[in-house]
Design a protein around this nucleic acid. Structure first.
Lengths: 170, 170
DNA sequence: AAGAATTAATCAGCGCACTGACTATTTCAG
DNA sequence: CTGAAATAGTCAGTGCGCTGATTAATTCTT
């Protein structure tokens, strides 16, 4: 008893949504280049010469993950890494010709995939879909740094008021 | 040029949503037990004695992933695996007392986390949110098996008509 | 200018997620 | 009943994603 209905859990739905997207991506876009890899290519098409950390910021990946993604793209010859002459800590990233070509090719396919992915929704619903997703993500994101503009941080051990020090169980 | 706006890509938004959820989960629910692990506990509270494959089906994880999750839960002593006497291929899974207790404890926290996660949405919007997420996921899921009820499978190399054999250009 | 703090990147470690190949058991066809 | 097909689970391999510790370079403080 006491089991919960997972289909009413946003986390579960988020995971399912991503699985669904992964499925479509691998069948309709590419089996080689992943969606996060494409995001990196895209960021570098928009702003060539970015450093690793900033790319991660643009596409929403932490320092460790972005390092791996970039090393994979480098190994495939899609981008070049050169030390920033002005700041020896940084690497400046730039797509190779092959990288640019790959990005262009996948852009078409990605658009087609998005169309299929969103096919069940009307134009209005798609707008709402984007809006709700963004609002929820942004709000949670805003809760991370206890730089507390208004709330979000207050306690230290239970993370939420009224928590009660654990019912003690069985 | 030719860069795309990622914030209009459902795949990107799906990933961000999951990251946002992960963040809230680890801070508000548990750093030990993950959301997929909780889903498994929940499935076994609802239906004790399920086999591994069926649990995976219930929570939406493939055979390999569910095997790892279950082995982790087993190592933590939250569930027991016993060979099915009636079918030597299967393992029957059952929560230990500790597993049941853990599930109960996390259920409370999960509910609080969901509340925070969905806080930016009104009651109406939450219903729409769930509905849209489910419809998109279900539709993509339905496209996986080329048991082709109407479309979804037709070509073999380009996966979508009108693809044109790559613009080629530099 | 020397020492402290900050910043960019790497590395080790854990966990989710998928595919393809393999093993063991069961079921089905003949 | 025997061989083929199906099924449950494991294993190896790849990739995303996060944290905490470490290294190297830069900047800030005094």
């Amino acid at each position: 008893m006491a089991a919960v209905d997972l289909t009413a859990h946003p986390g579960h739905l988020a995971r399912r949504l991503q699985q669904a997207h992964y499925l479509l991506w691998t069948t309709m876009v590419s089996e080689e280049i992943t969606s996060p890899q494409f995001a990196v290519l895209n960021a570098l098409v928009a702003e060539p010469g970015l450093d690793q950390r900033t790319v991660g910021e643009r596409v929403g990946l932490d320092r460790s993950t972005i390092a791996e993604v970039i090393s994979r793209l480098g190994r495939r010859g899609l981008l070049d890494k050169v030390r920033d002459p002005g700041d020896g800590r940084r690497f400046l990233l730039r797509l190779t010709e092959d990288g640019v070509r790959t990005h262009r090719r996948l852009t078409l396919r990605t658009a087609r995939m998005n169309e299929v992915f969103l096919a069940p929704l009307s134009a209005d619903e798609r707008r709402v879909f984007f809006d709700l997703l963004r609002r929820v993500s942004d709000a949670a994101e805003g809760l991370r740094n206890p730089t507390a503009p208004h709330a979000a941080a207050e306690e230290d051990r239970e993370a939420v008021p009224g928590a009660a020090p654990a019912p003690g169980g069985a």
